[in-house]
């Protein structure tokens, strides 16, 4: 992780899937802010009645490690009854860009 931090390009995608309810955006962004993860971009849609929120977050100044943030987001998802996934942006770059 340190090497990537030096390059200053460590980014990840947070995907939230589930039924819409009050406070999802704020709960998730608060948790991210608490760990110093900057939200670079955010989009929301309703897809086949499924609430979908996608955030691109910058993790350069993260005050914890990737696994812990992942774990906390998962727990937050259970609390809010939605599915939250944190994935490094490389996954999408590799899969969708040639």
């Amino acid at each position: 992780m340190t090497e990537e931090q030096e390059q200053g390009k460590e980014r990840a995608v947070v995907t939230v899937l589930g039924s819409d309810k009050v406070g999802i955006v704020s709960e998730v962004s608060n948790l991210l802010a608490k760990h110093n993860a900057n939200i670079a971009d955010i989009s929301q849609t309703l897809l086949e009645d499924l609430f979908t929120m996608i955030m691109l977050v910058e993790l350069d100044n993260l005050d914890t490690d990737f696994e812990t943030l992942n774990q906390e987001l998962e727990e937050k998802g259970q609390e809010l009854e939605v599915k939250i996934m944190l994935q490094h942006e490389e996954v999408f770059r590799y899969m969708h860009r040639i």
């Binding site: 995608v13 995907t15 971009d41 849609t45 897809l47 996608i54």
Partner: peptide, 17 residues
């Protein structure tokens, strides 16, 4: 955003479903 919603959801669906 660097990736569109469709691409991200496609990847998530591949893994989850």
């Amino acid at each position: 955003m660097l990736f569109n919603t469709g691409e991200i959801l496609e990847t998530v669906k591949m893994i989850k479903q």
